[in-house]
């Protein structure tokens, strides 16, 4: 049965161990945004043993490229982007301390293995709910790669940001299990 958790970042190994695919989590605290281009730069920094623009240990990365904020708002609409484009980078970040990723859509086997081996989770947020999710972001600040525009790395402060555990640290996958439950075989 699906459980509901309220968690504050950074996430610990214990936080991750308590999560199962299908659980609903309300996240609060600081999370970081990054898409393809920013991921490539982060992995390059790790390979060159250089300092990262934020502390990766226990961190949660949100795959998002928001719309520009209206005057007075911290951020525009900000729902998840499709995650597979980050598949080639995520395992390296997980190995170096990343505990959570928020996106939408399937991840590959390497990412799922890394989640098991180093205790991390992949959360799904509701794609296309950008107006609703953007409102739950209380602060946003570009902390690196401003020249990438919507793809820059932002530090976000979120309150009760709703996500669902898709891939847990035990190898479970909600996309596969949920679909099996409702599939009608001929």
């Amino acid at each position: 049965m699906s459980q509901v958790h309220y968690l504050t970042t950074p996430l610990s190994d214990e936080d991750v161990e308590n999560l199962k695919a299908g659980d609903i989590v309300y996240l609060s605290g600081t999370i970081f945004t990054a898409r393809d281009a920013a991921h490539k730069r982060l992995v390059d920094l790790i390979e060159n043993k250089e300092e990262l623009p934020f502390q990766l240990d226990g961190a949660v990365i949100y795959f998002v490229g928001p719309t520009p904020p209206k005057p007075g708002d911290p951020i525009g609409s900000a729902g998840p982007t499709t995650s597979y484009r980050m598949d080639s980078y995520s395992p390296t970040l997980i190995k170096h301390g990343l505990k959570g990723m928020i996106g939408k859509g399937k991840r590959n086997q390497d990412v799922k293995e890394a989640c098991k081996k180093y205790k991390a989770v992949y959360f799904g947020a509701t794609g296309g709910a950008g107006a609703l999710l953007g409102k739950l972001i209380k602060e946003a600040k570009v902390i690196a790669y401003e020249e990438l525009g919507p793809e820059a790395i932002r530090m976000l402060r979120v309150e009760n940001f709703p996500v669902t555990v898709i891939n847990d640290a035990y190898g479970n996958d909600l996309y596969e299990e949920g679909r099996k439950q409702y599939e009608v075989k001929d």
Binding site: G65, P66, S77, G128, A129, G130, A131, L132, K135
Partner: peptide, 16 residues
Amino acid sequence: ENAEIARTEKRPLCQD
């Protein structure tokens, strides 16, 4: 709910 927020607060439905 998202559609309602987008309409009343004039926020884009989706960031894409």
